[in-house]
Design a protein around this nucleic acid. Sequence first.
DNA 1: ATGATACTTGACTAATCGGTCAACAATTAT
DNA 2: ATAATTGTTGACCGATTAGTCAAGTATCAT
Lengths: 203, 203
Amino acid sequence: MGRTSNADQRLMDAALYLLWGESYGSVTIDDICKRADVRKGSFYHFFGSKSDLAVRALDRMWVEYKPQLDEMFAPSIPPMERIRNTCNATFAMQVELHEKYGRVLGCVMCSLGSEIGNRDDAIRDKVRYLLDEVRSYWVTAIADAQDAGLVEAGDVTCKVRCVMAFSEGLVAQARLHNDLERISDLADRVGEHLLARQPVSAA
Amino acid sequence: MGRTSNADQRLMDAALYLLWGESYGSVTIDDICKRADVRKGSFYHFFGSKSDLAVRALDRMWVEYKPQLDEMFAPSIPPMERIRNTCNATFAMQVELHEKYGRVLGCVMCSLGSEIGNRDDAIRDKVRYLLDEVRSYWVTAIADAQDAGLVEAGDVTCKVRCVMAFSEGLVAQARLHNDLERISDLADRVGEHLLARQPVSAA
DNA sequence: ATGATACTTGACTAATCGGTCAACAATTAT
DNA sequence: ATAATTGTTGACCGATTAGTCAAGTATCAT
């Protein structure tokens, strides 16, 4: 009961839009309110701070994004194809964002995590949590690929950290150089990376 | 002639210190001035803006850092050893920074580039330029490694972009998770990455 | 010494920031 | 209807922000 509202949703919409395009630090509460057409009093009715809003917006983004991951990483799909799927989806998403914003944006969670560092615990923890959720999909896929003999056996955790670091690094490069082409064959590059062997003569 | 000063150097010191620890957006001109013990009038005597200071500070940092790169990537050193050198130096630097700041910081240039995106042309161009300078060392090393049969032949530009993305990605992960151990064996991981083969049965 | 130059200082703006509040409006259970 | 609840509004606060400026100070060439 009480008055109904979707101002909180509009605020999260605005926050996500702005956070994709700009840095966390350069987005002000006033900016978000203006874009959402919500007065600041209402902002503080729903959210305790910009950090609070960011965390809840990330949560909502995850709810919308997770089903796509479930589809891309469906166990019925051969493991290496799952990985190709998610790489191609990453590229496709960057193409979409490029059309919407006029430039290559990269990954919000990575950019946010990089910017926040350890200055805002709530955001840092949320970014860690979400990236870890994504990681779990990779872990299953890579483990399945190892079982199928498609990826060399060995510490799955390490392998997944590496392949995600590689993918995230390439996307970050694409953002810095505002160059979509750099990740157009992301799936191939990631596939090559996963075929790495142990050094023949280890020290 | 005229009054002498090292206020500009102190301002660059302060800016670099703060930029390593915090994000560009969260460091204010007042913060920098306070840390450098310089009044704002003097700030604007030497620098046109925070962006201007950042660019010149990065330039000075590069002047101090370049000799180390020259040493690590000396042509007299076998190519794969050059790469091990720079990976180990990266780790060692992160250990040092960890002791100084109390947490894992990652790479300023990458963090800065990620945060700035395309919002400040001068900083973006400087970061691009410096990362490209670093890249040139890798290009020579990888090309030499290919000549020696230590790395598979193929597009050097692509290979270097990939290996740098990988390394930068791992360092970014270490920062996000505030976990030095993740990059303690950076050299091994990078070595493995460079041993990747082309897929046996390409689609 | 003196004048030109280069740097410093502190006081000053105007704008913007995050955050608060009391009064008001819409919704619903009773 | 009305009371309780929930959301909205616009004015307001103090702090901080980037940036300016005139007056003062140190340094050096002559």
